[in-house]
Design a binder for these strands. Structure first.
Lengths: 195, 195
DNA sequence: TATTTTTTATTGACTAGTCAATCAACAAAA
DNA sequence: TTTTGTTGATTGACTAGTCAATAAAAAATA
């Protein structure tokens, strides 16, 4: 029952299906048929809209990044103080939508893929840089220049590390304790100011 | 030119080849032929000694874990104070042999695989538990019980996070700065004692 | 010691299965 | 009648795993 104007609907459905398929099966070695099937279409249609499998995967990664960026922008908008800005960035990283095991699984899979694919690596670098600058936008006002950079790197590494642990499920660090751990790090950093 | 007593030699060569192939290509989707070829034998021989591909991969992971464990044991032996113990664990995680991009790439690939494979997940849990207990063996004497646990979790997450960043190469955190970052975290934790 | 037999090492060729990508064909809307 | 949406069938490439065959070393036997 072909209706016109399906393209955006199908694209979105395929990307969503790609995320959950990758997250569920844990890895990028998912087949076009699995993804297409979950989106309720044939694999031929997936190729029709995205060309090669790689293109669909890249579009998926881009979608993940865009979603995270948009959440971060939103959260930063309402943060009043510098301290709030840092907490906002941390909170977004572990927000319900981002910290879902499926999503985390997909993120991790893309991290691995980035080792092979320069295109993916570029995308991830964009994310890393934005995270850094978002963190610095608050930390800059709270710590001396050098300390702020170290703190930003530390927080970023902590976030990535907690993501990995989340992806492994079982004895999963939940959202709350993950946030607490990072906030605790930040707090000790702020307290040792000037030492 | 068949000589007798080749089994251990081949096994080791195949495992080494697996590590570098996985690390170089970034992912577990390497073929038996690639691994065997790098080890200088036919793919049939790899199957002869390891059975299925999965078995070779598991043996490889086990080898990685065993090597890390042995290095850690060695380092802890010479640590005199509690503080030294913690530093020793950190140092081992970023030692030259462990922090090689190839090795790190392989580690990351196994992390992803662990999402699918319960066997791999079990192995990784062994690693996580040992890391935790090694850290606690020092931290226990330096911090209050609760704080020690938080610090151990934080250090572990930092290590994993820095590994990920290392795997992505380019703007790589080198060994020295990675150690410094973790040590700095530990230091601030210790200083805020009793706060 | 000379020989046969067994064990160990090794591979090329093959099988069976999977999957990305293509394409011709069909259906509904414009 | 042209455009848009859609799929089943097919192709071509690749790969895990098997197997029969070969050859050297070691063990057993004469």
């Amino acid at each position: 029952m072909p209706k016109v104007g399906m393209e955006p609907v199908r694209r979105r459905a395929l990307i969503d299906a790609a995320i959950s398929t990758i997250g569920e099966r844990g890895g990028l070695d998912v087949t076009m048929s699995q993804i297409a099937g979950r989106a309720g279409v044939s694999s031929a249609l997936a190729h029709h809209y995205f060309g090669a499998k790689d293109d669909l995967l890249q579009a998926t990664m881009r979608h993940l990044l865009a979603e995270l960026a948009s959440e971060a922008r939103e959260a930063l908008k309402t943060a009043r103080t510098a301290r709030d800005r840092v907490s906002a960035v941390i909170a977004v990283s572990f927000s319900a939508s981002q910290f879902q095991p499926e999503t985390v699984g997909a993120w991790l899979a893309f991290y691995v893929e980035a080792q092979k694919s320069p295109a993916m690596r570029r995308l991830l670098r964009v994310y890393a840089r934005r995270l850094h600058s978002d963190l610095m936008s608050g930390l800059r006002h709270l710590l001396a220049a050098e300390d702020a950079i170290v703190a930003a790197e530390g927080i970023a590494a902590l976030i990535d590390g907690l993501y990995i642990r989340r992806a492994l499920k079982e004895d999963t660090p939940d959202t709350v304790s993950a946030v607490r751990l990072v906030e605790d790090y930040l707090e000790t950093k702020l307290q040792s100011r000037g030492t």
